[in-house]
Amino acid sequence: MVFQLSNECADYIKSHLPEELQQPRVAIVCGSGLGGIVNGLAASPRVVLPYESLPGFSVSTVVGHAGKLVVGLVGDNRVPVVLMLGRFHFYEGHDMAATAYPVRVFAQLGIKTLIATNAAGGLRSGFQVGDLMVLNDHLNMPGLVGFHPLRGSNDDRFGVRFPPLSDAYSLELRQGVRTALKELGISRNVHEGTYAFVCGPTYETRTEVRYLTAVGADAVGMSTIPEVIVARHSGLDVLAISLITNVAVSVKPPSAHSAVPATSMEDGMANHQEVLDAALEAANDIQAVIVQVVNKL
């Protein structure tokens, strides 16, 4: 069913594309507030398709997610790409496979590379708002307890039943980010690390932050990993970049028996507007890096 539906969706997309865009090579998923990546596309040709028109696509309900697919050309080499302006989240009520359905469509389009961006909370000591983290591993918390995008019968036309994920994040693409940063002269802090995927929509408690840090996570967020898993299952190479939009609070809360003012409970508390503001500030750098990387693919 998914194979047939995703193939139908791919055919629908191709039917709306001019010849120059018929064979997109890269898919880019734009996270919260990062839709400005679309500004890296050439002005024409460019095709915009709302999610509502695409067979099998869900509708994004999150502020900062435009809910449309944009197909265009990137860089001096005019590389054809597909941009997802907004993604689907498990916390919105979609099942895990549905959150990654667009990646199945990308595979049917013949796309070979997925670039996923997201907004994330920093866990590692020293992370600051505005830093970038290139993923080199992940911790799939929902997947460990059964909420997995590959749960159910396997369709061998997509990939094998038990795909390995030890090589999930392409070394070549990660090296490409480093090269792009040097070429562009971008001084923003860029790290590599492990992203912990949690369901949301609540931000983490202090104890949850300490737990995730203790088991090796460097940043935490509510997306991306289902897309990565399905991409690897379908044979796509993956690059994923987190923008650190807040620093997660890990210190224990003040005791009711202490004289600390109650307002200290709000210190460092995360909010979605903070995420969008940080994304807006960093958007130009992320856009430039992605354009530079894609232009060499």
Score class of each variant (00 low, 15 high):
Ala119Pro: 06
Ala120Tyr: 00
Arg178Gln: 14
Phe197Pro: 04
Val145Phe: 05
Arg210Trp: 09
Ala100Lys: 11
Asn189Pro: 14
Ile115Ser: 12
Gly200Val: 01
Ser153Ala: 15
His148Tyr: 13
Gly152Trp: 07
Ala219Cys: 15
Asp95Cys: 14
Ala120Thr: 02
Thr117Arg: 07
Pro201Ile: 12
Phe88Thr: 08
Gly216Glu: 01
Gly143Leu: 10
Met141Leu: 15
Glu192Phe: 11
Leu132Met: 14
Ala97Trp: 06
Gly159Asp: 10
Glu92Trp: 09
Leu150Met: 01
Gly130Cys: 04
His148Thr: 00
Cys199Phe: 00
Ala219Glu: 07
Ala119Tyr: 01
Glu208Tyr: 09
Met84Ile: 07
Thr205Pro: 06
Tyr203Glu: 02
Leu181Gly: 00
Pro201Met: 06
Gly146Leu: 00
Val209Pro: 03
Phe162Ile: 08
Phe106Ile: 10
Leu171Arg: 13
Gly200His: 07
Pro142Ala: 00
Ala116Trp: 02
Val160His: 05
Asp167Gly: 07
Gln175Phe: 05
Phe90Lys: 05
Asp167Thr: 09
Arg124His: 05
Gly221His: 02
Val145Ala: 12
Thr207Ser: 15
Glu204Arg: 00
Cys199Arg: 03
Arg188Asn: 10
Gly185Tyr: 02
Thr113Phe: 03
Tyr101Gln: 12
Thr194Lys: 03
Thr213Arg: 14
Asp131Trp: 09
Gly122Pro: 10
Tyr169Leu: 00
Asn154Asp: 10
Glu92His: 12
Arg151His: 10
Val198Glu: 06
His148Phe: 04
Leu135His: 12
Leu184Asp: 07
Ile111Lys: 05
Arg124Trp: 05
Asn118Arg: 07
Thr213Met: 06
Ala196Met: 10
Tyr195Ala: 07
Asp167Val: 09
Leu212Gly: 08
Thr99Met: 11
Arg157Val: 06
Gly152His: 01
Ala119Leu: 03
Pro163Asn: 00
Val228Glu: 10
Gly146His: 09
Ala116Tyr: 03
Val198Arg: 03
Lys112Asn: 10
Thr224Ser: 15
Thr213Asp: 05
Ser170Tyr: 03
Phe158Pro: 01
Gln108Asp: 11
Arg151Glu: 09
Glu204Val: 12
